[in-house]
Amino acid sequence: MDGDAASRAGYDNITELTLITPILAGHAGELRQVLAGVQISHDSPIKKISSIHYARWVVIDDGARLLFTSNFDGTWERYLRDFSEKIPEGLDAIWGHCEGWPGAQPFEPFRDWVREHEIKADLFYAAYPESTVKEVLRALDWKQKAERFLAALAKPPQS
């Protein structure tokens, strides 16, 4: 993992992941339906992983392959373990349509499968590489509260 992290493009605290995996013959339609059916809301399973800045799934090559890209806080191994332990059903529902999928649990075969299909970025840019998702959310929360406070102060006293 150490050598792994050191060879990665970019930053200490934020990591990028790109994965391209072959879709099982005839499964592209079903996979598209699964992805279309996911509603991102405040209680979505993916919200259980508080380190994700962005994640996207794209069916490419006329349904031959699935592209997954994500940016997240912390190390590669930790991030994958979070996926495996917290939302294994979600992972199985998506990548179960790909070739060689070992299942999201146990962790070790899943990690090895991801390593096998991972493509390392040649260039990775982040505008705020020092700020984690938690820091950003907290800063936005403070900003909103400060603005409300200022707005309340600015109101003329009620007569």
């Binding site: 919200k47 259980k48 992983i49 508080s50 979070d82 332990e85 917290k86």
Partner: peptide
């Protein structure tokens, strides 16, 4: 809470 790490692990 469960959006964070699973303490029991």
């Amino acid at each position: 809470d469960e959006t964070d790490t699973l303490v029991k692990r």
